[in-house]
């Protein structure tokens, strides 16, 4: 509880550091904030060409929205993923890249990884805003679902924050962490139904049946991936325009708070030793 107070007391610093990231990010660029859209758009273009035109991946149309556009379907999963991946990557390096500060000034160190959640989240908010407009133009009646979308966005941010708290500390002690994690993130992305629908996994799972004589299927294991739930919920809300599966939503919340609890615990335990370990 005392720790929470300390973190709360640093919220102004957190806001300032987040602003520093945001303001510094696109300084001296002509297109400024628009650059934050370019990355997801380029990725979207590549994946759409490769997966929709060449490999002919066909996700089921939105039910009940009736939407049937691969690129939009893709973005509903890709934008949350990109946010998550960026928070983890940048949060992980946040303490090392501010080594000078950590070794010279006392402040609540937790604001460093958290400010990355804020600055990446700011870009994400912008991207999601554009996505909502695109969805509306394509005929998705997305407006009533926005409040729940925001709640799920907060849950994903909490989950990402928890992971980057753990990883930022690990990275101070073992610099391998960042290389290891960047490979892991690539694998993780392909293990999450972002560019292909989960129905493809369901088919494979049915074909194989229970594994090793048990009733556990491939799909059961596949769905242990927390990001699978998050992506499913975002798609249900944005693309399908329907209530998310309550079980999925609950699991998202459980994953988020579990990650945050462990992250805070790890961070708090090693916070005092960070300056000399750097």
């Amino acid at each position: 509880m005392r720790y929470m107070n300390e973190v709360l007391a640093s919220r102004e610093l957190l806001a300032n550091l987040t602003l520093r990231e945001i303001r510094g990010q696109y300084k001296r660029t002509i297109f400024g904030q628009l650059w934050s859209l370019v990355n997801p758009l380029a990725t979207m273009l590549v994946y759409t060409i490769v997966f929709a035109f060449i490999l002919r991946v066909t996700p089921p149309p939105g039910n009940p929205s009736g939407l049937n556009i691969f690129a939009v379907w893709l973005l509903c999963g890709l934008l949350p993923w990109a946010f998550f991946a960026n928070v983890v990557q940048q949060g992980m390096g946040s303490i090392i890249s501010n080594a000078g500060l950590v070794q010279k000034v006392y402040f609540s160190r937790i604001v460093l990884p958290l400010s990355k959640v804020g600055s990446v989240g700011y870009n994400w908010l912008f991207e999601m805003g554009v996505l909502v407009v695109v969805l509306a133009l394509c005929g998705s009646f997305v407006w009533p679902w926005i409040p729940i979308v925001i709640i799920v966005m907060v849950l994903l941010a909490i989950f990402a924050a928890g992971l980057s708290l753990m990883l930022s500390v690990a990275n101070v002690h073992f610099r391998d962490t960042q290389y290891f994690v960047s490979i892991l993130m690539q694998i993780w992305m392909y293990l999450t139904p972002i560019i292909y629908p989960i129905s493809l996994v369901e088919d494979q799972s049915k074909a194989h049946g229970g594994l090793f004589g048990t009733s556990i299927t491939i799909l059961d294991i596949y769905r242990l991936n927390p990001l699978e739930r998050f992506v499913a919920v975002f798609r249900q809300l944005l693309y399908d325009n329907t209530w998310p599966n309550p079980q999925d939503l609950l699991l998202c919340a459980i994953w988020a708070f579990a990650a945050l609890t462990i992250g805070l615990w790890v961070f708090r335990k090693s916070e005092k030793g960070l300056a000399e370990a750097l």
Binding site: E12, L13, N16, L17, L19, R20, R23, G24, K27, R28, N98, G100, L101, K104, V105, Y106, F107
Partner: peptide, 29 residues
């Protein structure tokens, strides 16, 4: 503590912005 001056300055930000940023790092509201 004044162990090293100017740690925490962001090179791209103006002096004014950095005063506010650095002040809050040092614990000022």
């Amino acid at each position: 503590a004044l162990l090293e001056v100017g740690s925490g300055f962001h090179p791209e930000l103006s002096g004014r912005e950095n005063v506010f940023l650095n002040g809050s790092i040092l614990g000022m509201s």
